[in-house]
Design a protein around this nucleic acid. Structure first.
Lengths: 153, 153
DNA sequence: CCTTGAGTTGAAGTGCACTTCAACTCACAG
DNA sequence: CTGTGAGTTGAAGTGCACTTCAACTCAAGG
């Protein structure tokens, strides 16, 4: 078993397209050595980094934040299981929060389905402390909260 | 109390920016009458449509699908509570699925945090039946599954 | 040596959900 | 009548996470 992977191999093993892997490299999320012929060769440890990236994305973390998290790994040595455990644990709150939000939305929706009121002002929508929206222009993944005095009828 | 809202009023009441409301209108998600001076006037019922749109987005539904759902509402009359209940209920499965996915990810992450293995091949990632990814180019919100034989080490 | 599949690059394109802008008009208080 | 703030339009821009493309080179088998 070789100790390095081609981009094609890493792609198959990680389930991430080669183009995405190159993209991750440009963003500084993963790294690769080069052969004499300028081809990428990935250390096996990169497989774990890619796994971490995909998991983090499922949690809802942006590539930029993932990069920051990965930057906190020790550079000198190959990250230990504890290192990975620490990083994974750092998303735990985010994950809990998302699950909590979605669960409440479900419960509220159930309540509203009963009466068809869709009056989620008192339900899912009007919960300022729950919104985690970013600032500035561009697409927003999380929704900004509605006005405090909003009513539906 | 007037029976129609300006775009500014609807914006404040719904918590959605005027630019977004115009965008929704272009996509056919909401509609507005016009005054003599060509300004939009929204019927109060539109407030409920906007609420439905925002809720649906939180569930993870695209605007295109939301439009399709809204198109299924009766055109002749103002939608009844039961109409809204039916639409809301139609997202229920999606919401459950998302919650289930996220919850399993959390559990798996907990397991992996214990050992730092991040070997989510047997955990969160390698679950083909869970992926709901779309096809074609462009950004993907849901992640494609990795190869079946993928291992991490 | 030749072919073939895999890899390389930078630039441009894609899908989504909006926002921003410029140049204009409308509604209404004083 | 005149500001002023709210509204109008189409076109272009934005952020994110990639993908696609063209034109090229590399690696390995026959």
């Amino acid at each position: 078993m070789q100790d390095s992977l081609t981009i094609g191999e890493l792609s198959v093993r990680s389930g991430v397209a080669p183009s995405a892997l190159r993209y991750y490299e440009r963003l500084g999320l993963i790294r690769a050595d080069r052969t004499g012929g300028n081809q990428r060769r990935y250390a096996r440890a990169e497989l774990r980094r890619v796994a971490f990236i995909r998991i983090s994305q499922q949690v809802g973390v942006s590539l930029d934040e993932i990069r920051a998290a990965l930057d906190s790994l020790p550079e000198a040595r190959t990250p230990s299981p504890q290192d990975w455990a620490r990083l994974s644990a750092s998303w735990r709150g985010r994950l809990d929060e998302r699950i909590r939000l979605l669960t409440r939305l479900r419960d509220d929706l159930d309540g509203c389905i009963g009466c068809g009121c869709l009056s989620l002002q008192r339900c899912a929508l009007n919960n300022p402390e729950d919104t985690l929206a970013g600032e500035g222009p561009g697409a927003r993944l999380v929704l900004p909260r509605p006005a405090e005095d909003a009513t539906l009828t």
